[in-house]
Amino acid sequence: MATHAGGLTATRTVRVRSLSRGFGDRTVLNGLDLEIGEGEFVALLGRSGSGKSTLLRALAGLDRDVAGSGQIEVPQNSSVVFQDARLLPWQRILDNVTLGLRGPEAPQRGRAALAEVGLAGRERAWPNELSGGEQQRVALARALVSEPELLLADEPFGALDALTRLRMHHLLRELCTRHRPAVLLVTHDVDEAVTLADRVLLIDEGRIRVDLTIDLPAPRSHRQPQFLAYRESLLQSLGVYQTEG
Protein backbone atom coordinates (compact mmCIF):
# COMPACT_ATOMS: atom_id res chain seq x y z
CA MET A 1 0.00 0.00 0.00
CA ALA A 2 1.25 3.46 -0.85
CA THR A 3 1.61 4.72 2.67
CA HIS A 4 4.56 7.03 3.13
CA ALA A 5 6.17 8.37 6.26
CA GLY A 6 3.49 10.87 7.24
CA GLY A 7 0.70 8.43 6.46
CA LEU A 8 -0.96 11.14 4.40
CA THR A 9 -2.82 9.03 1.90
CA ALA A 10 -6.25 9.78 0.53
CA THR A 11 -7.32 6.21 1.27
CA ARG A 12 -7.53 6.55 5.02
CA THR A 13 -10.77 5.50 6.69
CA VAL A 14 -10.02 6.10 10.36
CA ARG A 15 -7.80 8.75 11.87
CA VAL A 16 -7.42 9.22 15.62
CA ARG A 17 -5.19 11.88 17.16
CA SER A 18 -4.10 12.06 20.81
CA LEU A 19 -7.19 10.38 22.11
CA SER A 20 -7.60 10.30 25.88
CA ARG A 21 -10.34 8.66 27.87
CA GLY A 22 -10.70 8.04 31.57
CA PHE A 23 -13.11 6.71 34.12
CA GLY A 24 -12.87 8.70 37.32
CA ASP A 25 -9.20 8.89 38.31
CA ARG A 26 -8.18 6.04 36.04
CA THR A 27 -6.77 6.99 32.65
CA VAL A 28 -7.60 4.30 30.13
CA LEU A 29 -6.49 5.89 26.86
CA ASN A 30 -3.60 8.31 27.05
CA GLY A 31 -2.86 10.31 23.91
CA LEU A 32 -3.49 7.44 21.52
CA ASP A 33 -2.90 7.81 17.75
CA LEU A 34 -4.34 5.44 15.20
CA GLU A 35 -4.90 5.24 11.48
CA ILE A 36 -6.71 2.60 9.49
CA GLY A 37 -6.53 2.54 5.72
CA GLU A 38 -9.40 1.87 3.36
CA GLY A 39 -10.33 -1.80 3.38
CA GLU A 40 -7.61 -2.59 5.89
CA PHE A 41 -8.21 -5.33 8.46
CA VAL A 42 -6.72 -4.30 11.79
CA ALA A 43 -6.77 -6.45 14.91
CA LEU A 44 -6.38 -4.79 18.28
CA LEU A 45 -4.82 -6.88 21.01
CA GLY A 46 -4.33 -6.05 24.64
CA ARG A 47 -4.62 -7.40 28.12
CA SER A 48 -7.99 -7.06 29.83
CA GLY A 49 -8.45 -3.53 31.09
CA SER A 50 -5.96 -2.16 28.58
CA GLY A 51 -8.56 0.02 26.89
CA LYS A 52 -9.31 -2.00 23.74
CA SER A 53 -13.05 -1.77 24.16
CA THR A 54 -12.85 1.85 25.29
CA LEU A 55 -11.13 2.71 22.01
CA LEU A 56 -13.68 0.78 19.96
CA ARG A 57 -16.59 2.42 21.76
CA ALA A 58 -15.01 5.82 21.19
CA LEU A 59 -14.79 5.10 17.46
CA ALA A 60 -18.38 3.85 17.46
CA GLY A 61 -19.53 7.04 19.18
CA LEU A 62 -20.98 5.03 22.05
CA ASP A 63 -19.08 6.79 24.84
CA ARG A 64 -20.99 10.01 25.20
CA ASP A 65 -20.83 9.89 28.99
CA VAL A 66 -17.10 9.18 29.19
CA ALA A 67 -14.71 12.03 29.94
CA GLY A 68 -11.88 12.60 27.48
CA SER A 69 -10.31 14.55 24.66
CA GLY A 70 -8.80 14.06 21.22
CA GLN A 71 -9.77 13.94 17.56
CA ILE A 72 -11.63 11.13 15.90
CA GLU A 73 -12.39 10.92 12.20
CA VAL A 74 -14.53 7.96 11.24
CA PRO A 75 -16.88 7.47 8.29
CA GLN A 76 -20.59 8.12 8.87
CA ASN A 77 -21.37 4.70 7.57
CA SER A 78 -19.86 2.38 10.16
CA SER A 79 -21.27 -0.72 11.84
CA VAL A 80 -20.68 -2.38 15.19
CA VAL A 81 -20.65 -6.07 16.05
CA PHE A 82 -20.86 -6.63 19.80
CA GLN A 83 -19.59 -9.56 21.81
CA ASP A 84 -23.17 -10.69 22.34
CA ALA A 85 -25.18 -10.99 19.12
CA ARG A 86 -27.61 -8.42 20.51
CA LEU A 87 -30.57 -9.45 18.42
CA LEU A 88 -33.94 -8.04 19.38
CA PRO A 89 -35.76 -11.09 20.75
CA TRP A 90 -39.16 -9.75 19.64
CA GLN A 91 -38.20 -9.34 16.00
CA ARG A 92 -37.80 -12.14 13.52
CA ILE A 93 -34.36 -12.75 12.03
CA LEU A 94 -34.99 -10.83 8.83
CA ASP A 95 -36.36 -7.83 10.74
CA ASN A 96 -33.30 -7.89 12.96
CA VAL A 97 -31.03 -7.74 9.92
CA THR A 98 -32.93 -4.88 8.29
CA LEU A 99 -33.32 -2.90 11.54
CA GLY A 100 -31.04 -0.09 10.39
CA LEU A 101 -32.18 -0.04 6.75
CA ARG A 102 -34.80 2.15 5.15
CA GLY A 103 -36.56 1.95 1.84
CA PRO A 104 -38.59 -0.65 -0.02
CA GLU A 105 -35.60 -2.77 -1.03
CA ALA A 106 -34.65 -3.41 2.63
CA PRO A 107 -36.15 -6.97 2.86
CA GLN A 108 -34.44 -7.89 -0.40
CA ARG A 109 -31.06 -6.73 0.85
CA GLY A 110 -31.66 -8.40 4.21
CA ARG A 111 -32.38 -11.73 2.54
CA ALA A 112 -29.22 -11.44 0.46
CA ALA A 113 -27.16 -10.66 3.57
CA LEU A 114 -28.63 -13.65 5.39
CA ALA A 115 -27.83 -15.90 2.45
CA GLU A 116 -24.26 -14.63 2.55
CA VAL A 117 -23.82 -15.77 6.15
CA GLY A 118 -25.40 -19.13 5.30
CA LEU A 119 -28.76 -18.53 6.94
CA ALA A 120 -31.05 -18.43 3.91
CA GLY A 121 -34.42 -19.88 4.85
CA ARG A 122 -34.24 -18.79 8.50
CA GLU A 123 -35.74 -15.34 7.86
CA ARG A 124 -38.92 -16.08 9.82
CA ALA A 125 -37.19 -17.66 12.84
CA TRP A 126 -37.04 -15.99 16.25
CA PRO A 127 -33.57 -15.21 17.61
CA ASN A 128 -33.88 -17.61 20.54
CA GLU A 129 -34.46 -20.48 18.12
CA LEU A 130 -30.91 -20.04 16.80
CA SER A 131 -27.64 -21.33 18.24
CA GLY A 132 -25.03 -18.91 19.56
CA GLY A 133 -22.97 -19.14 16.39
CA GLU A 134 -26.01 -18.60 14.17
CA GLN A 135 -27.04 -15.57 16.22
CA GLN A 136 -23.59 -14.07 15.78
CA ARG A 137 -23.82 -14.70 12.04
CA VAL A 138 -27.10 -12.76 11.99
CA ALA A 139 -25.30 -9.96 13.83
CA LEU A 140 -22.62 -10.00 11.11
CA ALA A 141 -25.30 -9.85 8.42
CA ARG A 142 -26.92 -6.90 10.21
CA ALA A 143 -23.58 -5.11 10.38
CA LEU A 144 -22.66 -5.69 6.73
CA VAL A 145 -26.07 -5.21 5.10
CA SER A 146 -25.59 -1.43 5.14
CA GLU A 147 -22.28 -1.82 3.23
CA PRO A 148 -20.27 0.01 5.89
CA GLU A 149 -16.93 1.63 5.22
CA LEU A 150 -15.85 0.68 8.71
CA LEU A 151 -16.70 -2.43 10.70
CA LEU A 152 -16.04 -2.26 14.43
CA ALA A 153 -16.07 -5.65 16.12
CA ASP A 154 -15.72 -5.99 19.89
CA GLU A 155 -14.57 -9.55 20.61
CA PRO A 156 -17.36 -10.87 18.41
CA PHE A 157 -16.34 -14.51 18.77
CA GLY A 158 -15.44 -14.42 22.44
CA ALA A 159 -18.57 -16.24 23.56
CA LEU A 160 -18.41 -19.00 20.93
CA ASP A 161 -16.96 -22.47 21.22
CA ALA A 162 -13.61 -23.19 19.55
CA LEU A 163 -14.98 -24.99 16.48
CA THR A 164 -17.66 -22.40 15.79
CA ARG A 165 -15.03 -19.71 16.22
CA LEU A 166 -12.85 -21.21 13.50
CA ARG A 167 -15.79 -21.33 11.13
CA MET A 168 -16.63 -17.73 11.95
CA HIS A 169 -13.03 -16.67 11.21
CA HIS A 170 -13.35 -18.16 7.79
CA LEU A 171 -16.70 -16.48 7.20
CA LEU A 172 -15.53 -13.07 8.40
CA ARG A 173 -12.44 -13.22 6.21
CA GLU A 174 -14.58 -14.16 3.21
CA LEU A 175 -17.13 -11.40 3.85
CA CYS A 176 -14.41 -8.79 4.30
CA THR A 177 -12.71 -9.80 1.07
CA ARG A 178 -16.01 -9.32 -0.72
CA HIS A 179 -17.25 -6.09 0.91
CA ARG A 180 -13.87 -4.51 1.65
CA PRO A 181 -14.79 -2.50 4.76
CA ALA A 182 -12.01 -1.26 6.97
CA VAL A 183 -12.13 -3.46 10.06
CA LEU A 184 -11.10 -2.90 13.64
CA LEU A 185 -11.37 -6.23 15.43
CA VAL A 186 -10.86 -6.11 19.17
CA THR A 187 -9.71 -9.45 20.50
CA HIS A 188 -7.66 -11.04 23.25
CA ASP A 189 -6.82 -14.04 21.09
CA VAL A 190 -3.38 -13.75 19.45
CA ASP A 191 -4.09 -16.58 17.00
CA GLU A 192 -7.30 -14.92 15.91
CA ALA A 193 -5.45 -11.66 15.32
CA VAL A 194 -2.65 -13.26 13.27
CA THR A 195 -5.09 -15.40 11.29
CA LEU A 196 -7.37 -12.56 10.26
CA ALA A 197 -5.61 -9.24 10.23
CA ASP A 198 -3.46 -7.31 7.80
CA ARG A 199 -2.05 -5.45 10.75
CA VAL A 200 -2.01 -6.25 14.45
CA LEU A 201 -1.89 -3.48 17.03
CA LEU A 202 -1.11 -3.99 20.65
CA ILE A 203 -2.48 -1.53 23.15
CA ASP A 204 -0.87 -1.05 26.54
CA GLU A 205 -1.10 1.71 29.14
CA GLY A 206 -3.41 3.69 26.91
CA ARG A 207 -1.29 3.76 23.76
CA ILE A 208 -0.50 1.60 20.76
CA ARG A 209 2.77 -0.11 21.70
CA VAL A 210 3.17 -2.53 18.82
CA ASP A 211 2.15 -2.06 15.19
CA LEU A 212 2.88 -5.27 13.32
CA THR A 213 2.07 -5.79 9.65
CA ILE A 214 1.23 -9.43 9.03
CA ASP A 215 2.63 -10.51 5.71
CA LEU A 216 1.42 -14.06 5.19
CA PRO A 217 -0.02 -15.81 2.10
CA ALA A 218 -3.76 -16.37 2.03
CA PRO A 219 -4.71 -19.64 3.71
CA ARG A 220 -2.98 -18.83 6.96
CA SER A 221 -2.30 -21.64 9.37
CA HIS A 222 -0.28 -22.61 12.41
CA ARG A 223 1.95 -24.71 10.14
CA GLN A 224 3.52 -21.64 8.58
CA PRO A 225 6.76 -20.88 10.41
CA GLN A 226 6.14 -17.17 9.89
CA PHE A 227 2.77 -17.50 11.63
CA LEU A 228 4.46 -18.89 14.70
CA ALA A 229 7.06 -16.15 14.63
CA TYR A 230 4.40 -13.43 14.61
CA ARG A 231 2.54 -15.25 17.34
CA GLU A 232 5.63 -15.57 19.55
CA SER A 233 6.56 -11.95 19.09
CA LEU A 234 3.05 -10.76 20.03
CA LEU A 235 2.84 -13.05 23.05
CA GLN A 236 6.23 -11.69 24.12
CA SER A 237 4.95 -8.13 23.84
CA LEU A 238 1.84 -9.03 25.82
CA GLY A 239 4.13 -10.10 28.64
CA VAL A 240 2.94 -13.70 28.69
CA TYR A 241 6.45 -15.04 29.31
CA GLN A 242 7.43 -12.45 31.87
CA THR A 243 7.20 -14.68 34.94
CA GLU A 244 9.45 -17.25 33.31
CA GLY A 245 12.14 -14.76 32.29
Partner: peptide, 12 residues
Amino acid sequence: SRYVELGESLRL
Protein backbone atom coordinates in the same frame (compact mmCIF):
# COMPACT_ATOMS: atom_id res chain seq x y z
CA SER B 1 -29.83 -0.77 27.81
CA ARG B 2 -27.86 -2.90 25.35
CA TYR B 3 -30.77 -2.62 22.92
CA VAL B 4 -30.74 1.15 23.31
CA GLU B 5 -27.03 1.08 22.51
CA LEU B 6 -27.75 -1.11 19.47
CA GLY B 7 -30.26 1.49 18.29
CA GLU B 8 -27.64 4.21 18.72
CA SER B 9 -25.01 2.22 16.84
CA LEU B 10 -27.42 1.74 13.93
CA ARG B 11 -28.33 5.44 14.04
CA LEU B 12 -32.03 4.64 14.25
